[in-house]
């Protein structure tokens, strides 16, 4: 079997969802997303089994597995762990070679990444230790408005006049929302205000990286159309199209790394570099 033949898997265990993608020499074979739950290792195992089933593939046929996401080190069956920073960049670039930067908003963090011409990471920035501007923030706020997360997004685009939401702290924002409801504001206007508040926060963070253009929006939160529009307004440009589920780009990038590393190992040579004790 030559290096490019065979199957490669990427598994992205995030704080809210676990994703897995299997690729072969020509592209994506199968992808699967499940909830992570309390045990990331189980979620990684489960999503991998499900994607194998979907691809009609046996585990022995997978030549290399790369794990990413917060649960990346809890998967003993993975060959290697890489951060979602590298993996999203790799996955997005594979899907659209014209992308020069990306925003990834997941369950517990948001990231802005710029790419070099060859697709490698040029720079990145992440939210500080705070849930503002994350999927978790949106879930809690949807809860405060007593709507499910999909309706929350839809509500936000039906606004007349978005409310001003100033709190970035999840706890303070929740009490701000309750005050706004008490003052008689519509859920639609509050939802829109919340979306704009996140968009401003993430957009400002992203624009610390220069230049920030030809941007793709990925991660679970990128499925939220309300936030998509709000972020496009803040950035002053539309997002680049991604021809796949925006939630799987991390897992896809991990699978591509798996394939590239198998190729790379065939090229490696050894030289005498002296002795060392820490590696």
């Amino acid at each position: 079997m030559t290096a490019v033949n065979g199957f490669y898997a990427g598994i992205d265990v995030g704080s809210l969802t676990a994703k897995s993608v299997i690729i072969d020499h020509s592209g994506i074979v199968a992808a699967k997303i499940i909830r992570t739950g309390a045990v990331p290792q189980k979620a990684g195992e489960a999503v991998f089994q499900k994607v194998l089933d979907r691809a009609h593939c046996r585990r022995e046929e997978i030549r290399r597995i790369v794990a990413t996401g917060y649960g990346r080190i809890s998967l003993p069956f993975a060959d290697k762990a890489l951060t979602e920073i590298s993996c999203h960049a790799k996955g997005v670039r594979f899907l659209n070679p014209d992308v020069a930067s990306l925003i990834d908003i997941g369950g517990q963090d948001s990231k802005a990444i710029t790419l070099n011409k060859d697709g490698s990471v040029a720079d990145f920035i992440m939210n500080d230790r705070c849930a503002a501007g994350t999927g978790r923030f949106l879930e809690i706020m949807a809860g405060a408005l007593e709507v499910n997360i999909d309706d929350f997004s839809r509500l936000s685009v039906r606004t007349g006049e978005p409310c001003q939401i100033n709190s970035t702290c999840i706890v303070f924002a929740e009490s701000e929302v309750i005050s706004l409801l008490a003052a008689g504001n519509s859920r639609s206007d509050i939802a829109a205000g919340l979306h704009q508040s996140i968009a401003r926060r993430v957009g400002t963070m992203a624009r610390r990286l220069k230049p920030f253009k030809n941007t793709a929006f990925v991660g679970g939160v990128a499925k939220n159309q309300g936030l998509c529009r709000a972020l496009e307004n803040v950035l002053g440009a539309g997002f680049m199209p991604i021809d796949a589920d925006v939630q799987i780009t991390g897992a896809l990038g991990a699978a591509i790394f798996a394939k590239e590393q198998v190729l790379q190992e065939q090229k490696n040579e050894c030289h005498d570099v002296g002795t060392y004790k820490n590696d």
Partner: peptide
């Protein structure tokens, strides 16, 4: 520490892959 690990590992990867 969990967040810092992502940043730092991502940074090391950025150097290596670059």
């Amino acid at each position: 520490v969990g967040q810092l690990k992502v940043r730092i590992e991502g940074f090391i990867e950025q150097i290596k892959f670059g």
